[in-house]
Amino acid sequence: MSKIAVTATINGDEQEFLCEPGESLLDALRMRLNLTGSKEGCGSGDCGACTVMMDGRMVCSCLVLAPEAEGKRIETIEGVAEGSVLHPIQRKFLEMGGLQCGFCTPGFIVAAKALLERDPDPSETEIRYWLAGNLCRCTGYDKIIRAVQEAAAEMRQERVVS
């Protein structure tokens, strides 16, 4: 099968990879680029474990064809922390027990970050609906929602201070 060469900016760095025409972006990230932080829970757009940002838009990477990433900016869970400094959402997930097995966590963190970038002060209901595309089977969502609320509050605080 002839392969397609794709060049994309992934977590700020330009990367080149070869993929098959029908390959998903998720498979390319995981198998070609060794970025296994994005997870496959379903492969059909129903669980959100594969959530990444593409040119600032939240997408299920299992539903995006890898060749479509050509020339695009892709941000994955691996790019959420700045170096070794965790993003407030990551920190709040840790401090508040927002994960049990942690398999859904990368998807939730990428999605929550996208939400707080659009809306720094979402209500509980808004958070619940925004995250309704992300399945978690372990936590019952309670501590996830609280972690996002706390992170939002902290980020608003930081914004006021700086």
Binding site: E78, L86, L99, G102, T105
Partner: peptide, 23 residues
């Protein structure tokens, strides 16, 4: 008490290796 879990950072940064991740 409620300290941060030892495997936490790996799990919020995408570094943890799960079943489908091993090569």
């Amino acid at each position: 008490t409620r300290p941060v879990r030892p495997d936490g950072i790996d799990k919020v940064t995408g570094k943890a290796i799960y079943g489908p991740d091993h090569v």
